[in-house]
Design a protein around this nucleic acid. Structure first.
Lengths: 245, 245
DNA sequence: CGGTCACTTGATCGTCTTCAATACCAGTGG
DNA sequence: CCACTGGTATTGAAGACGATCAAGTGACCG
């Protein structure tokens, strides 16, 4: 059904329509603004692609010719300074929509963290669709607003929180997002490396590692493996995230 | 023409229509999506208000019942931690639009820095207008996207730049925005206090003050008075902002 | 003038960074 | 089965940048 590699699968309208109808991301995404009956039109302009870990989906400064919708995996969005310092502005998982831009070029880069399946839409084609589905436009505004709220939270974190509070905030956020997919209560997998976490929280790898170790030794969390986290005291950790000592 | 105090001036359609037609903010704002001929409809739902310095226009957590459009003055948007730490997420000047929210409550607060004149629109009423003017909806999406790009830049600043680089970035940004209104080349007025700048850049008042002094003594800028800045070496300062030593 | 308030300047302190070494884990090949 | 390798994570010690605490300056205003 889906393309196993980077080969697009768009030319068979029925197959493609099914691809959209049964897409894991559809429920959480822009696409749900299009009714099932018309989903073929959406499918007709979507190019389904798979990206291996480390692949660049969007490159800062490139012409903003496409939108991207994630249907599996996790992506990191980031900006770089000329000397290589990196700030990760967010992680995008299933259902997330990338590529909103005012100017003609992308303002950030996006890379696959693990194996990522996604749909590419030509900007121009999606815009013509938008005229027929005002609900979709409203949905885009909703998405942009949500991102804006998240960005403001992140500014508060980066500007005013301590390393400890940043990690607490981050782990609580991940646990909330992980809950949808992961099974055991309060336990989840971090798809990103310590380096990614550091560049997301405005810290160094060492500080992230030390702080996680400390939170573990204090009984807030369990760390079964480097990529797994279990939150043992969610309320207390949420308190930490908000600055309660 | 405009209300001199907090008294709304909406009931005279012709007066109100003129208020919108000749509004300083119209050219830069959402309102330019509405044609001159229909501007009365916009004016009919706008409540023009004046806020004294320090007044709260929007309170984080309150029901998000209104949109706000600034027609004169400057506003600071911010978020607080329970213990009082503050992060200013942005400054909004003439033409800026506030109040985008997904949830039913505002995600941030907004206060007048100087005397601010603004229009309030009921969320519900503006939404009905939006159905008649899809261009206005597009404009809102554009605005949200622009804000998002600015937010990402600010995350890079807060997470990865030094105090020196933050001040350089901030001054360059202010000079760009000031250019529209201020007369002499590269010279402008900062409407906000050192404390506001500090809370915007994730620093303390002392560090802001010291860093400005240093930039002055190094010949990058002139500081005729505490609220005035003249940029003497724009290119070099832009370089600083991007990390060139 | 005396008061307040914002800003500036100075001295000390602490958190996080930097530099460096070690541990760990998965994969590969002897 | 175990040594070897490369990459990632952890831990340790020293250092730096910005925060904190504290005093001093200047402008505005009754």
């Amino acid at each position: 059904m889906y393309a196993p590699s980077t080969r697009p699968v768009v030319l068979d309208p029925h197959g493609a329509a099914n691809a959209c109808t049964h897409c894991d991301a559809r429920a959480h995404s822009v696409c749900n603004a299009v009714p099932d009956s018309d989903v073929a039109r959406l499918a007709a302009i979507a190019v389904v692609t798979t990206a291996q870990p480390g692949t660049t989906l969007i490159q800062e400064g490139d012409p903003a010719s496409h939108f991207v919708n994630i249907s599996a995996g996790t992506v990191r969005m980031y900006k770089l300074l000329p000397d290589g310092r990196r700030q990760i502005t967010g992680f995008a998982g299933v259902g997330h929509f990338l590529g909103l831009a005012v100017s003609s070029t992308y303002a950030f880069s996006a890379e696959a963290i693990d194996t990522v399946r996604y749909c590419r839409f030509s900007r121009a084609r999606l815009h013509t669709l938008l005229d027929d589905y005002p609900a979709m436009e409203k949905r885009l505004l909703e998405i942009a607003s949500t991102e804006l709220v998240a960005a403001q939270d992140q500014m508060l974190l980066l500007g005013r929180k301590t390393a400890r509070e940043r990690l607490a905030s981050f782990l609580m956020l991940q646990s909330r997002q992980g809950v949808m997919c992961q099974s055991p209560r309060g336990r989840f997998v971090l798809p990103m490396s310590r380096g990614d976490i550091a560049d997301y929280l405005g810290l160094t790898i060492e500080t992230v590692s030390r702080t996680i170790t400390k939170l573990r030794s204090e009984g807030y969390i369990d760390v079964p493996s480097a990529t797994e986290i279990a939150i043992k005291a969610p309320a207390a950790l949420e308190g930490l995230a908000l600055g309660n000592a």
